[in-house]
Design a protein around this nucleic acid. Structure first.
Length: 257
DNA sequence: ATGTCGTTTAGCAAACGA
């Protein structure tokens, strides 16, 4: 089973790129983030024509998350986190598919730091940590995936010293990430590639992709029962080089059936 | 400080978020 997460940065603006990647990569379950479209403007039909069921939680202009499946019915279990500090923001969608619980999330960016946006990021992170603990306690197989807007370690940033004050790499943010992971989650990309530099995002500015000045901020966290089923975890860098593409690129894992 | 996108509209240029 191939599972992917992709921050598309505008699902309508990226539709040709998204459809091309779906046809080429053939993922079974996909989490999308940054739809930047209200519910009524989500392009469900072309996605369905590729054989996917799809659910989405949109929002005008910003945020927005979706879940796609071509391996069975999507049973939505929640949208939004319990006690979300700002329920108007569409950042979390969760569904049971084929016996696994999938959560697709778009954690707040949080810049500038300090400030109210950074406070909101940390508050959202706390809600996620609480909810993730409950998911673990359920004993179900769970995949948490999406754009976490966190570089966990110095291996995940092209110039760590420049990012120390940024909301994506600040001590508070990384501490929250490790509190989450240490509940018992497995960082799938890092587990398969313990020592490699891995990036999933490259800024549009200053030719960052060509210089490989990237960040690893799109992640998969696996519950304990899924850890032993992990066969592969990779970044698909090719779509980042396409015309009119997102600043993120798809990341995927393969789980044994 | 700056760079570049997608999206929206007190609207076709400018603001915002990233």
């Amino acid at each position: 089973m191939k599972i992917a997460t992709y921050n598309v940065n505008g699902v309508n603006g990226r539709l040709p790129v998204l459809l091309r990647w779906l046809e080429q990569a053939q993922p079974d379950v996909v989490a999308l983030q940054e739809l930047k479209a209200p519910d009524e403007k989500f392009p469900a039909e072309p996605i369905r024509q590729l054989g996917y069921e799809v659910i989405w939680h949109g929002q005008s202009r910003w945020n927005g998350v979706a879940m796609l499946s071509r391996i069975g019915e999507i049973h939505e279990t929640r949208r939004g986190l319990p006690g979300d500090p700002d329920p108007a923001q569409s950042r979390y969608i969760e569904a049971a598919i084929n016996g696994i619980l999938f959560a697709g999330l778009y954690l707040p960016n949080g810049n500038p730091r300090p400030g109210p946006k950074f406070d909101y990021k940390l508050a959202w992170f706390e809600r996620l940590i609480e909810h993730a603990a409950q998911l673990l306690a359920s004993g179900l197989p769970v995949v948490l995936m999406g754009d976490f807007n966190v570089m966990p370690t110095e291996l995940d940033v092209y110039k760590p010293e420049r990012w120390l004050d940024d909301a994506l790499f600040a001590p508070e943010t990384r501490a929250a990430w490790f509190r989450l992971v240490e509940q018992g989650w497995t960082d799938a990309l890092r587990a398969m590639h313990p020592d490699e530099t891995i990036y999933t995002f490259w800024d549009y500015f200053r030719n960052a992709f060509a210089r490989d000045a990237g960040l690893r901020i799109d992640h998969f966290l696996l519950s304990p029962s899924l850890k032993d089923r992990l066969l592969a975890a990779e970044v698909d860098r090719e779509p980042r080089g396409w015309e009119k593409t997102s600043d993120h690129t798809p990341v995927w894992i393969e789980l044994a059936d």
